[in-house]
């Protein structure tokens, strides 16, 4: 397996393809051995429009790996840090488990583990341990609709940049967090 060099990696979720089957949540739990009741990624259901023109769609919701991350700014011990993959991770040896990053995250994607399970904040790592080996993240490999793509945002010829051209947008751009994870918004 070819060793992949670190670069600014990102993810795009196409909400037009997402069917809300929760397979990504379950695959993530299985891959990362997450404790019962906790999730790194989950499905959020949106209901929009006014009666009778209403519609609903689902969205995969997980860490956006912001380049200007509120959780990294909030962390008192620099345990939350930027990695060379463009992601945000927690150093277990520095974390005190104060929960400030969980509250500081404007997307509310972090979740505290219980004390008996280590007490670390649980968050998406973009499956760096798989990316290093040249594999895709667990959520992407299991997605039945092909709604998720992970790739190198710096490489102009990568497939993720083709998806970017299809109209991918940041979540909550008003927060100025500049995420590396994008969505293609739902269109009726």
């Amino acid at each position: 397996m070819a060793k992949v060099k670190p670069a600014r990696w990102g993810k795009i979720v196409d909400l037009n393809k997402c069917v809300g089957c929760h397979a990504c949540s379950v695959a993530c739990v299985a891959e990362n051995k997450i404790k019962h009741g906790k999730h790194r990624t989950r499905i959020v259901e949106h209901e929009e429009g006014t009666f009778p023109n209403v519609y609903r769609y689902t969205e995969k919701w997980s860490c956006n790996h912001c380049q200007n991350a509120p959780c990294v700014d909030a962390c008192p011990t620099e345990a939350s840090h930027y990695t060379e993959w463009g992601t945000v991770e927690v150093k277990p040896e520095l974390c005190i488990g104060c929960g400030y990053c969980v509250l500081a995250c404007p997307y509310r994607v972090r979740m505290m583990n219980d004390r008996r399970d280590g007490g670390l904040p649980e968050k998406c790592t973009l499956c760096i341990h798989r990316l290093e080996k040249g594999e895709k993240p667990a959520c992407e490999t299991t997605c039945i609709a092909g709604a998720i793509i992970t790739g190198n945002l710096d490489d102009p010829h990568s497939e993720i940049n083709e998806w970017m051209a299809k109209g991918a947008v940041e979540r909550r751009p008003d927060l100025l967090t500049h995420p590396n994870v994008f969505i293609i918004p739902y269109r009726r």
């Binding site: 008192p76 011990t77 520095l94 005190i96 488990g97 104060c98 929960g99 004390r115 007490g119």
Partner: peptide, 11 residues
């Protein structure tokens, strides 16, 4: 209140 109280000195 910390979830890792024995590491509090790191702060």
């Amino acid at each position: 209140d910390l979830h890792r109280p024995w590491y509090f000195y790191k702060v």
